[in-house]
Structure formats: structure tokens, C-alpha cells
Amino acid sequence: MKLRYDVPGDDLSLAGKASAEVKRALGRLGVDPGAIKRAAVSMYEAEINMVIHGGGGVATAELSPERVVVVMEDSGPGIPDLDLAMQEGYSTAPEWIREMGFGAGMGLPNMKRNADELRIESEVGRGTKVTIVVAFGAAGGAEA
């Protein structure tokens, strides 16, 4: 099963709806709750990033009995220094985003912690593609 969502880039209040729908779809498939939570958290962080930094984009989720593969693709400004962006606490989010409860520099680290596989392809001026794989029944991912 493949789900596809257009993520609007100008309204943070809508961010997270795609992730919530994927979470519900995984729930209906009877996937292990721990794996669902890891998939939901990593996709939600990516979705928030896409709204804050990427100007919106397209999210797809491919669900199979073994795993979910989420691909989030935007045409935003790209990430100039990925190593720096992966550091906990590093953020380029504007102040108003912090007032909304995000922008603490935890997004990418949270995604890495929860995903079994995280691939980030980014080109400055062209956009960013984030691929998140969460395997069901795998012990990896989230810290206890």
C-alpha cells in the first residue's frame, strides 16, 4: 500500500496530519505499537522540517508487512552542512517556530534515533529528500 500527501508549506497548524494518517494506517495493519511510534515520530519531525525549512513538499509512505518506507521531498533551500544539522541543539529555525514548540535542534537527531535507516540527500538551492525506513519487529531505533 502506498500513501501520498501534499504537505503545505505555509501553515504549521496543518503539519503532522500526514504523519497522523500514516500512524492510523499502520495501526489498522496491526503493526507493533513500538514500531508505529518510531515511524510516527520520525515522519512527524520530517514533516515539521519540511514545513519550516522546505516550503512544503510531497510525502509518501509505502507500507508492507515488514516495514514502512517514508520519503519526504521538498524543493526548498537545501541543507548546506548536514553534519552540523545532525547535531543535537543546532537549529536555523526562526524565533516564531520556537514559540510554536519546535526549532530546538532536535528534529534530525530524533529522526535518527527512531528510524532503522535514515537517508538525507540535499542540494543547496535545489531541495532535500529524506528517506526513513522503520522495520517492524526490529529492536533497533528508539533508545529505552
Binding site: 497548524s13 503532522g16 504523519s19 497522523a20 511510534k37 515520530v41 512527524y44 514548540g101
Partner: peptide, 17 residues
């Protein structure tokens, strides 16, 4: 427990069960 009154607080909680 939060002082953040916006839809994201509900959505985050929902995603985290």
C-alpha cells in the same frame, strides 16, 4: 504537562500515544 497551547501539542501527544 505543557504551556504550549497550539494544535501541535495535541498532535504530538497523539503521535506519542
Amino acid at each position: 504537562l505543557t504551556g504550549l497551547v497550539n494544535p501541535q501539542s495535541i498532535r504530538t501527544a497523539d503521535l506519542m500515544d
